[in-house]
Every structure is written in C-alpha cells, then in structure tokens.
C-alpha cells in the first residue's frame, strides 16, 4: 500500500518561508499569505511559526511547520456530515467541493487547526499534498521549493524511500493526540 507523508528536518530548516510561498503560488494565489513570522495572521494551507527556545544569550530561533497532518484517523473525516472530507487510498485527506456545504464543523474538529475558511470557496480549505501534481508524477510544491532539502515527501510504506527512512528516526507531530499523523519532524539538535 502506498501511504504518503512528509518528514520535516528541523536540523537543516532555515525558516525562509519558500515552502509557504510556493504553496500559496501553486494552490491559493488569491490569498497571498506568505507569513514566515508568527506575527502575521494565519490563513493558508501551510505556515512557518518561528519560536524562540532557551534563555538569553543561548537562544535558538526554531522554525516550526503548521499544516495538515493527513491523519490516518482524521477527526475532520469523522465530523463531516456529507462525507465531503474523505481520505484517498494513498492516505491523502481531501475535500470534495461537490458535497461540501460549508458548515465549518471540520475546522472546529481539527486539533491541528490545519483548516481555514477560504472565502473564495465559501468553505474549508487545507493542504492537498499537491494531489494534482502527485497524480502527474510530480512532487508537492513545498518540497520542490525548499532550498535546504528539509521537506521530504514520499511513500512511508516503501522501505527504500527517503521519507520512510527518515521517518524511522523522526517523531510524528502531536502524536499524543492519537490521530496517527503522517507528518514527522526531526527535532533540531
């Protein structure tokens, strides 16, 4: 079985926001939410939040990634009344706008706050793992844009993929929520 996911290597991520810009350019050009700083309001499919860690003068600025986890046990799919939110066979959580009524229950149900309301659609919007590119044999825009190769996308079930090899040493984001997220991070040193 193919099971797509991401590994984010925070040891090499420089927090430049190229992934956010590429995502916005590829998927939501009408939103213009390029926000590499936490001060900028959220509102896109992916964001970088920079947090400070440690005590002065030993302070590190760590860029953290905020996006959809494509959970295997996704709370959004459980609350969607019409089944508009669904999971593909290869594990991508998507929205079928032919069925979505825009009740926003999924937005309130996602413990990762990975969904937002896209005014142009009148309904929720989220990371699609660039499914339109993946189906053409391309890779997600965020991974393609990353200058340091810190975003690794691939099949987590393929033992030979870079993603699955790195995921073995990485931790799932918010694993304590029990939704079986498929975005992993390698914490900074």
């Amino acid at each position: 079985m193919v099971r797509y996911g991401f590994v984010i290597d925070l040891r090499s991520c420089i927090g430049c926001g190229a992934c956010v810009a590429a995502c916005s350019e590829e998927n939501t050009p009408q939103l213009k939410t390029i926000s590499p700083d936490a001060e900028v309001p959220l509102g896109g499919r992916r964001d970088i939040i920079i947090v400070e860690k440690g005590l002065f003068p030993a302070i590190a600025r760590i860029p953290l990634h905020h996006t959809c986890m494509h959970c295997e046990d996704a709370p959004c799919t459980h609350v969607c009344p019409t089944g508009a939110t669904f999971k593909t066979e290869d594990g991508i959580v998507l929205i079928d706008y032919a069925l979505c009524i825009g009740c926003k229950y999924c937005v309130e149900a996602c413990p990762y706050n990975a969904r937002y309301v896209n005014e142009a659609l009148g309904g929720p919007d989220k990371c699609t793992m660039c499914v339109h590119r993946v189906r053409k044999g391309l890779r997600p825009a965020c991974e393609t844009a990353c200058p340091t190769g810190s975003i690794i996308w691939g099949d987590l079930d393929d033992p030979n993929s870079e993603a699955s090899r790195k995921a073995a040493r990485a931790i799932p984001i918010g694993a304590q929520l029990g939704t079986k997220p498929k975005v992993f991070v390698i914490p900074p040193a």
């Binding site: 019409t82 706008y97 032919a98 979505c100 009524i101 825009g102 009740c103 309301v117 009148g122 309904g123």
Partner: peptide, 10 residues
C-alpha cells in the same frame, strides 16, 4: 453555511 448551494447533500 458557506456553500448553501450544496445543502441538499445533507
């Protein structure tokens, strides 16, 4: 509802 045109999908 943001997409009332689909309300019958309920």
């Amino acid at each position: 509802l943001g997409r009332p045109q689909n309300v019958l999908a309920l």
